[in-house]
Nucleic acid binder design. Structure first.
Lengths: 337, 337
DNA sequence: CTGTTAGCGCGTTCAA
DNA sequence: TTGAACGCGCTAACAG
């Protein structure tokens, strides 16, 4: 492996010149530059990243904190982060937290140990004041979820507007008895979706009913979607539409509806969220709000990169487009029930 | 940030002593050891990984080559690799190849650039002689897929035996007209499963029929499973069982069977492979061969670690247990058809 | 059992 | 525009 000294010798210059050429765009005469490049070529020199890292005091690693990496939603985000960071010369330190606060702190401590230069947090709960201890010292980006009260840059979709869009759609279909399967978790997205649900109902003069609002497990499990939908479908009068804040939940709800003898969408409309689960593997294909997961990941990585390398102020908040995708699980409300 | 020199000064010893204590278990008197540990504690010293890496000439990064990271099968393996490597002090360089040979080479070149110390390959095709160029220089481990003709350590399940088990089960159920949805790809697993299918049939005196053997897309897409199953179900006489080499394919096959008016499993049995797709989200729950994906990833990471750090010879081949999980999509063949 | 010392390869003053 | 030289923090001879 050729070293910078080898290149310098070959080109008849000093290591400083080679270094300058490779890094800053500092003034190097075109003549010597050419010689140096020739030498680099000839010796097929590659800078030693390890030495560079030590000298620059950076690890070239980005820390990724995620509840897990197998949930397709996170997997897609991770994919975006991975592609960008690999291209930018970074590796990933994947730290799975299982949505546990202790583990999150433990993960962020990797920053203190210099195992990473910055971190992307995939699922922080509301109540993230503790994050400030880290955000003042290290570059941080929150992806998808964030705490609005904590000043850490984030990228996400507009969960409130997405829900309003969905609710307006449902209402335009003639639905009035609209239920929601929310979640027990503490994500901002969950809170905003619930608010969007309530607000839109009220805007149309429909009183939100507590019996129509249920909370599934923190991780949106299929099973809890199924059982919560069952509760909902036994309420009288029965809701004609169920808005689920995740596709898995919607899948569970559809299964439940079927087991109870209701047709989807003829008897009950079911809508999901995310569009990453297998929304089109079974009929009815699920009407859902698509999130640009891969793009979310890409943006997060780029934002972190900017923060780490340019030091310059970046956008504290980036909102990506969502899209309501109408498929088969939604239909007009029946006039008679 | 305290440095090793600080610790040495504080403890009244030399940096060499501190270093010895932290690394090799070399002889250090209990007395001085105690003093050093006290100093470390007091200064809350953390070794500078960057300096260590330079000195040891290692990046503490492992390269992961995968077609993608969103397919749940790979996601689970990645999860296992991630957990182990994070614990061992390694980061991951995730390089997605899209199952493209050029990209694979490009990925492995990260090794030459010293961006990683070793690599785990998640889906090498048969015909991997080109791998030798790398395996002689760098620690490599193949996970799940491998080329038996290339001497690179690998971890996987016994695909042949798993298929034999499945086929024996099918035959014990009275099935004789058994079809298989294989794949166009060049994976060893695909070849072994096809061989297991043929061998078991012949062992029982059943002639494999070409019309019962079809090949789905390289990536086991739901869509191709669906269309290939359709072909199969139109063959006369119709197969009474379809063995699919992936769950996604099985999901497609079930959908197809339904659309053609066949009940699963009453009219046709469908079996999958992997148990990572949503095998229990819809009825019939899919009978499938479970692979220990997470464990596969863990083993791969550990094997690579051993190879990288102990230099000692490791097992060239590790076979993990598979398990046939009988659920709802399989049933005895009807005596009359 | 412990200390001294020489680099690992690079980036970056400071001088020229 | 270029070069000499130092040091990032650590490990590993080598000496004692």
């Amino acid at each position: 492996m050729a070293t910078m000294a080898d290149v310098a010798r070959e080109a008849g210059v000093s290591v400083a010149t080679v270094s300058r050429l490779l890094n800053n765009q500092e003034t190097v005469s075109p003549d010597t530059a050419a010689r140096v490049f020739a030498a680099i070529e000839k010796l097929s020199y590659e800078p030693n990243i390890l030495a560079r890292n030590l000298r620059r005091n950076e690890s070239r690693v980005i820390l990724i904190l995620a509840p897990n990496v197998t949930n397709p939603y996170y997997a897609h985000i991770l994919s975006g982060i991975g592609d960008v960071s690999t291209r930018l010369g970074y590796s990933a330190l994947i730290f799975t937290t299982g949505d546990d606060l202790e583990r999150e702190r433990e993960g962020l401590d990797m920053l203190k140990k210099h195992r990473a230069d910055g971190a992307i947090l995939l699922a922080t709960n509301i109540g993230g004041e503790w994050l400030l201890e880290y955000s003042t010292q290290f570059p941080l980006v929150q992806c998808s979820e964030y705490d609005p009260a904590v000043d850490v840059p984030h990228v996400s979709i507009d969960n409130y507007q997405a829900t309003v869009d969905t609710m307006e759609y449902l209402i335009s279909l003639g639905h009035e008895r609209i239920a929601i399967i929310s979640s027990e978790n503490e994500y901002i997205s969950t809170a905003l979706r619930l608010k969007g649900y309530r607000d839109t109902l009220q805007k149309h003069g429909i009183m939100p009913r507590n019996e129509y609002i249920v909370f599934a497990s923190r991780d949106y499990s299929f099973k809890s979607g199924k059982s919560k939908a069952k509760e909902l479908l036994n309420v009288s009068p029965r809701p004609t539409a169920i808005f689920c804040i995740s596709d898995t939940l919607a899948l569970g709800a559809i299964t439940s509806a079927r087991e109870l003898g209701h047709r989807v969408p003829e008897d009950v409309t079911v809508i999901g969220f995310d569009d990453v689960e297998h929304t089109t593997m079974f009929h009815p294909y699920i009407t859902t709000v698509a999130q640009p997961c891969y793009e979310l990941g890409k943006h997060a990585a780029n934002m972190l990169y900017t923060q780490m390398n340019q030091g310059k102020e970046i956008h504290r908040q980036v909102i990506l487009e969502h899209k309501l995708i109408i498929r088969e699980s939604s239909a007009p409300a029946k006039t008679l029930d």
